[in-house]
Deep mutational scan, measured.
Amino acid sequence: TYYTVKSGDTLNKIAAQYGVSVANLRSWNGISGDLIFVGQKLIVKKG
């Protein structure tokens, strides 16, 4: 599943929405910090 980042989104918010961990979101998307951008597509695997 792909999720497109919207204004106001955070990794924590997206992780909670999908029932996954922030660590997994980072791993699946090659993100090291907490910086995400509006319009960015993130890979999300269902929890």
Rank of each mutant, 00 (worst) to 15 (best):
T1M: 15
T1N: 13
Y2E: 13
Y3Q: 02
T4L: 07
T4P: 03
T4I: 11
V5I: 07
K6R: 10
K6M: 12
S7Q: 14
G8I: 03
D9K: 01
D9L: 01
D9Q: 02
L11E: 01
L11T: 03
K13Q: 13
I14N: 00
I14H: 00
A15G: 08
A15F: 01
A16W: 10
A16H: 13
Q17W: 13
Q17K: 11
Q17P: 01
Q17L: 15
Y18F: 15
G19P: 02
V20D: 03
S21E: 09
S21A: 08
S21H: 07
V22I: 12
N24E: 15
N24R: 08
N24C: 07
N24Q: 14
N24D: 15
L25G: 00
L25C: 02
L25W: 00
R26Q: 13
R26P: 00
R26G: 04
R26H: 06
S27G: 09
S27M: 15
W28P: 01
N29R: 00
N29F: 01
N29G: 01
G30K: 10
I31P: 02
I31G: 03
S32R: 08
S32F: 12
S32W: 09
S32A: 14
S32K: 10
S32T: 15
S32I: 13
G33K: 08
D34H: 09
L35N: 11
L35S: 12
L35G: 09
I36S: 03
I36D: 02
F37T: 12
F37E: 11
V38G: 05
V38I: 14
V38E: 14
V38F: 06
G39D: 07
G39Q: 04
Q40R: 04
Q40Y: 04
Q40A: 06
Q40L: 07
K41P: 06
K41D: 09
L42F: 04
L42A: 01
L42D: 00
L42E: 00
L42P: 00
I43A: 06
I43R: 08
K45F: 13
K46C: 12
K46L: 15
K46N: 13
K46A: 15
G47N: 13
G47E: 15
